[in-house]
Design a binder for these strands. Structure first.
Lengths: 359, 359
DNA sequence: CGGTCTGATGTGACCGTTCACATGGCGACA
DNA sequence: TGTCGCCATGTGAACGGTCACATCAGACCG
């Protein structure tokens, strides 16, 4: 197991005819459907039929073909198939913040679901949400010939850019706002946010801030709406949410800012990272969590349970989300069936960062 | 900006000829090189030459072709090109733990670098490191026709599986052990681990544990080696490292286990997540960090600075790593130039979890 | 027992590129 | 002034699949 850091055992071009090789395999290229056909004594079309599980093939013929295939290590050529069918069987993901737990989990789940369904996935990560880099990413994906697009990014802008580039694509986002009932998939972000907010209110908090995500992310907007809805449903006066950028760093600086006034007893952060930053700021100010300030996050990243104190948060099932997302897209693409919908219900996890209001 | 959760503005097949459309665009399919050629009054081959920046084309001809292209919104068909050149311009990433910060960052960086170079990237995420799922992922990537493979996973097993499936591919891993000087790219993981270890020793610690990663990950092995090297270089007696799985949960349980005996004053964890779990366990035991126990991590995930106390760790530049990785692979693929090598030096970040040995 | 249907297979074209080679024009050089 | 070579361009054949259609047995039916 030494030094296998870079192995480069190239195959094509080289080859050469050494040893008592039978003449069958053509020189440089991989075996094709016709090579298989020749060896199996059938026509190339019959081989194709085997490949596509055509019903009318005699079992023995089929077997013979299959045997030759495995003997030759035949692998169908994706490009050739894509060329004639004009289907790439590839989905694209446009993702921002893909290093964060949420997006990363979704990507993994999407990839898994797509693979299951026989699709490939290519990603384009954009660092900033600016129009230029969105356009770049989108153009890259479009050039690849994707059949559908999943967006994990500031969706409003992506949508605009899509239109601007006049790219027409089946398009799905991970989140919905809850409207658009027929079509949209939904972790009910709003419900999750209401859960979090209600929890704080039930603990007696009245002065609650919301540290939101960037507003062109649909989930950020939905969580904010959930917060506002619950606050007004419970007749608690609200202050304007603070718009963050999902990072712990931002949470930290926002927290410092907020603490100069300290007119609150609880904060609901729109994701766990920002919550962590807030916790840091609170401690820096010499305050104790949850005695002086309660904090609640959103997502339940795997680290959240190990924060100090362990973070109260709302669990979201990213994996399920990714799966449904692909199902939706594929249902659209192949329209073989109605996708069952139904909402993924997020779950409140009460841990150590929320407590009864100081007063 | 309502309900854009799922927009499905399909294009092909439909079309239809309404309005005063000129007859040029063929019905269902996208414009091809020949459509462009016809409109520009040249042969298809000339269009192809424009596409491939062939030198011998009269500027005016070229311009004419380009004009027609943009007028028709011509996009080259990747499948057709791939078919004839037998180059997919696609790289594959086989990744485990892709929801964690390190792998996720590397993937993003690889994608960016590949895109820069005109390559696409497809990923296959494996959940468990078992042979079956590795084989699945690999087969999937192979069927896609990737030209090169990047592995962010238990590399030993991947390598075996690769051989077993008799897949021959240019192959690069993110880490090297430092041997194999000509070819390998290296964050010097060993140096980083030595840095961390030395830091603890200099603080007076003598009883130091190492919580390592899974040993079939090269980086885990390298960090462990660095730890052992430094310990023996400084004549500090060592205990056998504990083999973990990269997760905070594991760190927590390992910590609890360790603390039943408590024959140490410091722990070097092979990544930040495990360090976080350890911190949790230490606090659970009623001990204080760093007064009673010093902890150091590895990676510098963005949250590390906001842990309590902020985590001392070793920063690793995943992005640079990803870039170099692609450069290496592409250098191999296109062999246009010698890649400059040189080592990425990791950096020690002393924050709040390490202190002078209790004694 | 002829006709029709269906099952199993073959034939040839076609998808949109690039490649190898051919062609014609024009300047340079002997 | 013939010819050599290069430049700009064109022609036709791949590439490896799938699709539409043709073919040829038998089975079934009246």
């Amino acid at each position: 197991m030494d030094s296998l850091a870079c192995v480069t055992v190239n195959m094509p071009y080289c080859c050469g005819s050494e040893g008592p090789v039978t003449q069958e395999p053509p020189r440089g290229r991989a075996p094709s459907i016709r090579d298989v056909a020749r060896l199996a004594g059938v026509s190339h079309q019959t081989v194709s039929r085997v490949l596509n599980q055509h019903p009318s093939i005699r079992p023995e013929t089929k077997q013979r073909v299959l045997d030759v295939m495995s003997e030759l290590q035949y692998k169908p050529n994706r490009a050739a198939r894509a060329l004639v069918t004009s289907r790439s069987h590839t989905l694209g993901i446009l993702s921002a913040s893909s290093t964060q737990y949420g997006p990363a989990s979704s990507i993994a789940a999407i990839e898994a679901a797509a693979r299951e369904a026989g699709y490939w996935v290519t990603t384009a990560n954009i660092e900033s949400g600016d129009a230029g880099s969105i356009a770049d990413g989108l153009a890259h994906l479009a050039a690849q010939g994707i059949e559908g697009l999943v967006v994990i990014a500031p969706q409003v802008r992506v949508f605009d850019t899509l239109a601007q580039l006049s790219i027409d694509l089946p398009y799905v986002t991970l989140q919905s706002t809850g409207r658009d009932p027929g079509h949209a998939l939904s972790v009910d972000q709003i419900a999750g946010a209401r859960l979090a907010t209600r929890h704080l209110i039930e603990l007696g908090h009245r002065n609650i801030y919301h540290l939101a995500g960037p507003q062109d992310w649909i989930e950020a907007e939905a969580r904010m709406r959930g917060f506002l809805d619950e606050m007004s449903a419970q007749d608690v006066p609200t202050t304007a949410p603070i718009l963050g950028d999902w990072t712990a760093d931002f949470g930290y600086y926002a927290g410092r800012e907020l603490l100069t006034v300290r007119d609150f007893t609880a904060i609901f952060a729109s994701n766990d990272q920002m919550a962590l930053g807030l916790m840091h700021a609170v401690r820096d100010a010499g305050l104790e969590i949850p005695r002086d300030v309660s904090i609640i996050g959103f997502d339940d990243i795997p680290e959240a349970a190990h924060f100090w104190p362990p973070l109260t948060t709302v669990r979201q099932d990213f994996a399920e989300l990714g799966r449904r997302c692909v199902a939706l897209l594929l249902g659209d693409l192949e329209d073989d069936s109605e996708q069952q919908d139904g909402t993924i219900v997020p779950e409140l996890l009460v841990r150590g960062t929320t407590g009864v209001a100081a007063f």
